[in-house]
Design a protein around this nucleic acid. Structure first.
Lengths: 335, 335
DNA sequence: ATGAAAGCGCTAACAC
DNA sequence: GTGTTAGCGCTTTCAT
């Protein structure tokens, strides 16, 4: 069995309180501090965080629930967040719910039983019912990327509508008029906003929107492949396509290759996220790049802030909105 | 405050032992079972896993330490493992150590204080010193992908030497003789094995190995870019390059694009991992594909096995070795 | 089948 | 500054 504080107390002849005080930054006589440190060394003592957690009612652990770890956007955010949180002494338990509402609900309950100190979530269930119960504990919840209307909590978002409008402007300025879009799942707020940006851009040009140019994808690679094939088939006069997340961008590029189309001669393309992938395409892809590390740091920062202010009075909810950036490649032909 | 078992006991008039027994699958009179369930419902009771963990000395949590979450190979493995483990009631705490030995050691200590029931690790420190102390607890350790010589624990590996030889054979059969390799960090066992496969392949052809064709990369995208540039510059007569992990493969493709080279006319390429990326390349890349989901399931399976057999007598150590597969694209020119 | 009580390893209030 | 002690929420003998 692992050594306990009691063992150290016995070994040094000191009381439990002194040992505890030593570990919690209290004042301990120099002589005793040395004795304690010797005992720690010899007994290979390590604080038992489980016992500490039971006593202090804080586990120093944050739960993170995301739709797919296997999605670059999510993975990048988690890497960065985990870094920040761990450097402040917090562990993160990541639950990948496979874009499944049932699993998402299970994950939150699971984390709740584990008594995590807070939950960070990129929600699949747009109603937020899965979080209602946890919220009653008074522990902080921070939402990433997708807002939930009737859930009062902090969130860090991206200005998706503007990002999409910006991308569309690039196409219009290059002379394109028949532009397709591979959108995301209709119930996801980011997808709605990006599609809204597409529509707004057309409206600002006083051009009619053609519904056959709109494809509703599912944010997966395979969805991107299918979307591209369908748009090309249905719209012989289409000259450009805007793809609204990374996985579907990769899928669209696969589709283009497998159909044997030339970018940008036969089809212009603007993708989403992952600058490195954009560079690996030939010609280099023009993309909308989200401020992933910024989102992650913002989320972690808000969580840490909430954690240290405690479950005090009802605080003002924070809704941070970050801007995306267009990174220009050579995948848009000037007509 | 959250409800406790005591509250349920009071509410139902039953004893603590009965409630506990109810939660642990014991026999409870039908009448009481109903009462308990009503109380749970009304009090919104949820088991406190922290308290349970203190008592049972098992946290139902597995620690995972990897070099980079932001690396597809790692991310895919974790997604899959987490799935299996969680379906067996285990949480996973993932620590990304940023390919840093110091951080890796910190991560293991951190997990040890958190009293995780076992550790899964893709090691950066090839000596394994970071695991020595944890191993003394008698809790299971499973290594992924990289073996550590003097650490007696289970590991799941890939037959890297054979994988590399297979890739080289494709080149030789297509008539290539001057083949470059973008290898990994010299101290990492997978990198050594892949390089060994490269050397063996040359030896079997009775051809001399040219050291200028060997580049030691660092398994990053940027490393791949630099490697490709250097190999091309140093070896005007080189006709093919073998890249030994996914990130560097992407980097090599970026390098090829930025140098304006044509694949496979001017340079043949065989990459590593990520079939989807290979499909997104034009022409489609030939790659060595590791059995990622297989590795993940194997690792999770071994961990669960160790967990349930307990800290019994010294068990036979398992070393699983899985095979990789060549997926043929059109990036290798036949000379 | 159920109740009473001890104790897992720690923190914190209190006394000295 | 240090010791004593109660108790966090649970599981687990041991009686009954």
């Amino acid at each position: 069995m692992a050594a306990t504080m009691k063992d150290i107390a016995k070994r040094t002849g000191l009381g439990l309180a002194t040992i505890s005080s030593y570990f919690n930054g209290g004042n301990v006589r120099e002589k005793n501090r040395v004795k304690i440190e010797e005992a720690i060394e010899e007994l290979h003592y390590e604080v038992n965080e489980v016992a500490r957690g039971l006593k202090t009612n804080a586990t120093k652990t944050i739960g993170v629930v995301i739709p797919e770890l296997n999605n670059t956007f999510c993975a990048e955010i988690i890497t960065e967040m985990e870094d920040v949180l761990r450097s402040h002494g917090y562990a993160t338990i990541v639950c990948d719910c496979r874009t499944d509402k049932k699993l998402e609900r299970d994950a939150v309950e699971f984390l709740s039983r584990k008594r995590v100190d807070g939950i960070i979530n990129m929600p699949v269930d747009t109603e937020g019912t899965h979080l209602k119960k946890f919220q009653k504990t008074g522990k902080p919840i921070v939402l990433i990327d997708r807002k939930i209307q009737d859930l009062s909590c902090d969130s860090v978002l991206v200005d998706n509508e503007k990002a999409a409008e910006d991308a569309m402007r690039v196409f219009f300025q290059a002379g394109h008029r028949k532009i397709g879009i591979i959108g995301g799942p209709e119930e996801i707020s980011t997808a709605q906003e990006r599609l809204q940006g597409y529509r707004s851009a057309y409206e600002k040009q006083n051009l009619p929107i053609q519904e056959s140019l709109i494809y509703h994808g599912d944010y997966t690679i395979q969805g991107g492949v299918k979307g591209l094939e369908k748009l090309v088939t249905d719209n012989p006069d289409m000259t450009a396509v805007f793809v609204t997340n990374y996985e579907m961008t990769m899928g669209a590029v696969i589709g283009v290759n497998e159909l044997g189309l030339k970018i940008p001669e036969q089809l212009s393309l603007i993708g989403f996220d992952n600058l490195q992938f954009a560079r690996a395409c030939n010609p280099k892809l023009t993309i909308v790049a989200q401020p992933t590390p910024g989102i992650a740091r913002e989320v972690a920062g808000i969580m840490l802030k909430r954690l240290e202010e405690g479950e005090g009075e009802e605080k003002e909810r924070i809704t941070e909105k970050l801007g995306a950036e267009i990174i220009t490649g050579r995948s848009v032909r000037v007509i």
